[in-house]
Design a binder for these strands. Structure first.
Lengths: 337, 337
DNA sequence: CTGAAAGCGCTTACAG
DNA sequence: CTGAAAGCGCTTACAG
């Protein structure tokens, strides 16, 4: 493989000129630059990554810690991973994947061996064990998700509270006064997820503020679980005309199935909104109004926040992404009885 | 951050002795080694990754190219990714993730900058554009999946043909003589997937060899799609008493739903086998007999194959993993009419 | 606008 | 069993 000396020789310049020409860190005469570019092309030269890391102060690699626990929805995690990788590449950064098995030790390892310039953290829980390590490492870091103590950390996430309010207000505007919330499985609310309870609490608060009736139930991802959850909501909320879903994709499908079996037309009899969903709701029958979980935006923003830290001054802060509402036709005015 | 010179000074030895002590590449006096280990511990020393890459001939990084196209089942891809990362880590290798957007250019880039020691390739299609690049790069490589031309390549995959035969024989043994195959969506059979047609063809061949009736239909992942597929199979196969599923998780759930709605008891009226599935079938009602897609085994084996190439002599070859059958109670003898 | 040279932190022959 | 030193291929002050 050609190295910088080969290029310098071929272009008839010194290696420092080659280096500067490639980095753009000092002006190069057009004619010189032309000869260098040609030599690079001819030789298929690409700077050696290790030499660059050692000589420069950058590795051009980010670590992405993407744990996968029981509650993790794999497609959602995948969407975030791909979004982070794509965003990182657009800044000429590669992404090294760290998994659950090596969560904290992996972070220490890549940091202390100077393998990475920054860290992006996925699937953050309330009392995430990685958070303390991150503070101690003091590398540029962005978390996608919000732990309970955000001191000194930079976080980005969907504004789940605003999403809940948006779901409620959009239904209230259409005239609904009794709205149920089908939540995730039970354990998600106990095992340190931050977004599920955040959404639930804001949902209930928004309902109260609007003066309407609301109810919440966790939901197991099975036919029976969905029926139980739905029946519980209906029992607590006799006049329920709308359901907000903050749960996984399977539950969506099962619910629509159950409603069809029971001859409950959507949206004629029941309006449905899918909230904070990482998947498309277009394939459902009917397609569901959705407040998307913006994996693309979050991933890109997380990368940008790390780049900003790398660039210099940047104050740690929490950045919440405003929710958006996509109308697909699964909500309507409540039926008049 | 402490470097090797700091450790050498603290231990009262030369830096080469420190290096050899850590790599184990030459014998070190027990007492000397003790002083070095202590110094490493005291200083929290970890070798600089860039320096190692530059001085040594290894980077201890693998590239994992994991494209995500329309047909990709995200949970399956994620399972393979995690399995590869976990296996790589067990050999002290980190994994750099390359995505669809940069499939071939990314491979060239990481190879020519000497960023990685080897490449692991996921989701291989029949005429995968990455394959030619891999041949040209001549880096240690393992593909999970089998392209049409495997010359010079090392591949590992489930033996889909054997899996199809296993599904058929296990049903035939129970007395079934008319077995339907619900396949993936149409496009998967046209767009260069290798495993879907491989399974289908072996299934039909095994049926013919056993002297029983078989039929195959592609399946769209919707209630309607599943009903159409099921009805087509039943129409072609009047006495159908068993169905083999080689399709995604949603279709499994929908099919069981449809059968329940039609009062077709599983396995009393219809036996079901889930074949080459990347997901657990335990949560279905009933849990389904399954021939698993062994993501754990494939991922680990792919890593081992790259390590072997790194270690020295290794002839390119295709390695097929024998399928296994997990009985869950969704098959039985056909009903006697 | 360009070059000569130090130095990044390791690994590994070469020597003893 | 251990050490002195070359060298990996860059980046970046220092000089002109």
């Amino acid at each position: 493989m050609a190295n910088i000396t080969d290029v310098a020789r071929a272009a008839g310049v010194s290696i420092s000129t080659v280096s500067y020409a490639l980095s753009g860190k000092r002006p190069i005469a057009a004619e010189t630059r032309g000869r260098i570019d040609q030599a690079v092309l001819d030789l298929g030269y690409r700077p050696n990554a290790g030499a660059r890391m050692l000589a420069g102060s950058r590795t051009n690699i980010f670590a992405l810690t993407a744990p996968m626990h029981e509650d993790t929805h794999p497609p959602a995690l995948m969407a975030f991973v791909l979004s982070v990788v794509t965003a990182a590449r657009s800044f000429d950064y590669d992404v090294l994947l760290l998994t659950e098995g090596e969560a904290t030790s992996g972070l220490r390892r890549v940091a202390s061996s100077s393998l990475v310039d920054g860290i992006i953290v996925l699937d953050v829980t309330t009392d995430d064990e990685r958070v303390d390590v991150l503070r101690e490492l003091a590398l540029p870091t962005a978390l996608i998700g919000v732990p309970s103590d955000t001191a000194g950390l930079t976080c980005v996430d969907l504004d789940f509270e605003a999403a809940a309010r948006l779901a409620v207000s959009s239904l209230v505007e259409q005239g609904h006064t009794a709205i149920g919330l089908m939540g995730h499985a039970d354990q998600l609310y106990n095992r340190g997820s931050n977004y599920a309870p955040r959404f639930r609490d804001a949902f209930l608060a928004a309902g109260a503020a609007a003066g309407i009736s609301t109810a919440f139930h966790t939901t197991e991802a099975s036919r029976e679980g969905v029926e139980v959850s739905l029946d519980n909501l209906a029992a607590e909320l006799p006049g329920m005309t709308a359901v907000v879903l903050n749960c996984n994709e399977n539950v969506h499908g099962i619910l629509l199935e159950v409603l069809r079996a029971r001859d409950v037309a959507v949206p004629a009899k029941l309006s449905i909104i899918s909230a904070c969903s990482s998947f498309s709701t277009d394939h459902f029958l009917p397609p569901l109004d959705v407040i998307p979980l913006p994996s693309l935006v979050s991933g890109r923003r997380a990368v940008e926040l790390v780049i900003e830290q790398l660039a210099g001054t940047h104050d740690p802060h929490v950045e919440l992404i405003a929710p958006t509402y996509e109308r697909k036709g699964s909500t309507a005015a409540p039926p008049r009885d």
